[in-house]
Design a protein around this nucleic acid. Structure first.
Lengths: 214, 214, 214, 214
DNA sequence: AATGAATGAGAATTCATTCAT
DNA sequence: CATGAATGAATTCTCATTCAT
């Protein structure tokens, strides 16, 4: 009912080249947790989807909470990795680069898995406090750092004038959440077409430039 | 197998000053739902906290889901009402007015109950789709409308130049969520002191003016 | 859970000419008991169908068992009365008279209410042992007596030669249950058209005459 | 709300001579269902009588209805099997053979288990419509077929003259129910001594011969 | 490691009955 | 008499976890 913190021993993947039962379970658990949330997902369901026995679950994970955190960490590491790459592609035009960065962020964050992860963290914030840490660590922090470094360069180059660079990065990220991401997280009807994303991205880039252009 | 008969009656509050058992239940349910979420809260817990028998719950509400939505609507109507009043107080200085509005919004949205409501909506978005509608209706919509009207006035008065007023209102509201609200929703450590709130509010006002001042 | 035997005081119907609430309840209870059986029928259902409060039920009947037996007795008295009239209509031809009596019996016994009563008696034979007495008394006994008297007359008149008249009556009644009644009681598909009934009735008359005609 | 997963497995009886837990449950369930009927029998009672936990019941059967039908089918197959053997023993004298067949049928059908099965089918005819099919298939059909074949032989041999053989078989079976079976099904006081059974059987044989002897 | 039957605590819900008004 | 909220025991069913094989 409450989570236990000991990370289950992670057996090295067996050398036979087949994805180990460990990962099979993790993958099935993830699918269900993301769809249904922690409480509504039962160990039986996971076992069935993974094609293993209920008992096997407990050979690999101490209990449901352990399996859950294992999934979450794996998922955060794997799925949120792409966010790091934001703003890697050099663009001659700053406005275009900002717009493109915003569009990328929005697209990544309305991905069903990202939405699912966000939901699960918010839902279980009290029961599993370190979920948020993990999400922040793998998801938000990296992006913010990436943006900060980028903005610092532009500041040094005189293309932007920013006093608090970290805050500016946070602002940029926050503004990206206008309308589309915000409504997606609530499962409210929302236009997620590329055109719609580009519209918000354009607005973000414009606003950001008004705020920080020389 | 057999049909259920008694439609849950919503008795008008008795005038004797004592909150009726109906509201007693609703209040207890709310407390638990906000703390623990829907799934983790059991009807037994609610009955116990409300000081009534488990059976009594079903004299007033058809089932757990019904009790939950009843709580949520009541709560949305009552608790989120205050958001309407944002920006009602006239201020000679536009910057100060914006800053104050932002500070008010931030304060209201990091209230534990508001955070709890947000969490529950995000968590149960799939199971109870109309929760988000209710939250949006009572919480977000009103605030946006209020801001839009205000900005329209300022636009008409030449103090702001805004093309898409509704989008501007959304931007303003989104920017208010930078750092403090965002982290609060994830139960991450965050400085919620007045000074911290004012800091973000000031940043929001500044940015907004840079974006839309003539 | 087990029945209590005290018959509830039967208030004389109120003189206002309107069917009393007592009978209103009895009628609704009957409808539900016959459809669903004793266990599956709840006091709430009865109250709702009768349009009275649950509490009212207990003003008129001591408990569920009492209400049930009251219904059953009333029902047996009222509904099974018609069986008495079997073989009242004089017929010049004995064969025709027998056939007609058999057809009447079959028709009466496949009536949904008769089937319902039979079912309920069989189902609750252990829990309410005197149901069977009542059914026998009001339903079977009368018919048997009627048949016995009739056969006795015919025996005296030399049209039939019967040693054990009571047994003959029972035989006649039993034979009437061939196929149609038997299958109806089990809700098995069965042809209940008049032609089908007449076919069995004819067979019964024939057989009976072979058995007892001089 | 969530789907159920484990289809109840029907394990083959383990060969160790001890009845498996599956059958242990089935046997206990049967005992209670036959005594008390479906509705009055609770899963807790069954678990207790079988000496297993409540949860175990659901490892073997999907739900109460599934356990019930499983019991019923098993029971019908096992218990009603003996009815098939009616009239297998050759008898030089037709009258004696008929009498003996009737006596056998009566004895089998007033067996407490047969009575219990009949009661349960009649009681649950609406809720479990295929109970009657099962009972008819395993119980009645076989007997009728057996009788029909026998009568056909006798007809071919000129010992009986029967136009509608199937109807004759039904008549024979119906007549066997006179008095003893009929009253037993209602739990009415009845003389079930061998003498009494022989009396009815004799009457049935006599009547049948009058109806169909050359 | 793998299995899957077994468990017992606890979940939601129903229901006959009572009782103050 | 009539009402309907209140009750608490009982019911069906779920679920995380254990353990012998």
């Amino acid at each position: 009912m409450t989570q236990t913190e000991q990370p289950a021993q992670r057996p090295s993947r067996n050398g036979k080249g087949t994805s180990s039962k460990y990962e099979q379970i993790l993958q099935s658990a993830g699918q269900l947790f993301l769809q249904q949330g922690y409480e509504r997902t039962s160990m039986s369901q996971i076992a069935q989807l993974a094609g293993v026995s209920k008992g096997s679950l407990y050979n690999h994970f101490e209990n449901k909470a352990d399996l859950f955190t294992a999934f979450f960490e794996e998922c955060s590491r794997t799925r949120l990795n792409t966010l790091k790459s934001v703003s890697q592609a050099p663009q001659p035009d700053l406005r275009t680069a900002l717009e493109q960065a915003a569009a990328t962020i929005i697209s990544l964050m309305i991905d069903p898995e990202a939405i699912g992860l966000y939901r699960i963290v918010v839902a279980e914030a009290n029961e599993f406090p370190n979920l948020a840490d993990t999400l922040w660590h793998y998801g938000v922090s990296r992006t913010l750092t990436g943006l900060s470094e980028w903005f610092a360069e532009k500041h040094a180059a005189g293309q932007l004038i920013i006093k608090d660079i970290d805050l500016a990065a946070e602002q940029f990220l926050t503004m990206c959440q206008t309308r589309i991401i915000h409504r997606s997280r609530l499962s409210l009807p929302v236009d997620t077409s590329q055109a719609s994303i580009d519209g918000v991205a354009s607005m973000v880039a414009d606003s950001f430039l008004r705020m920080y252009a020389p």
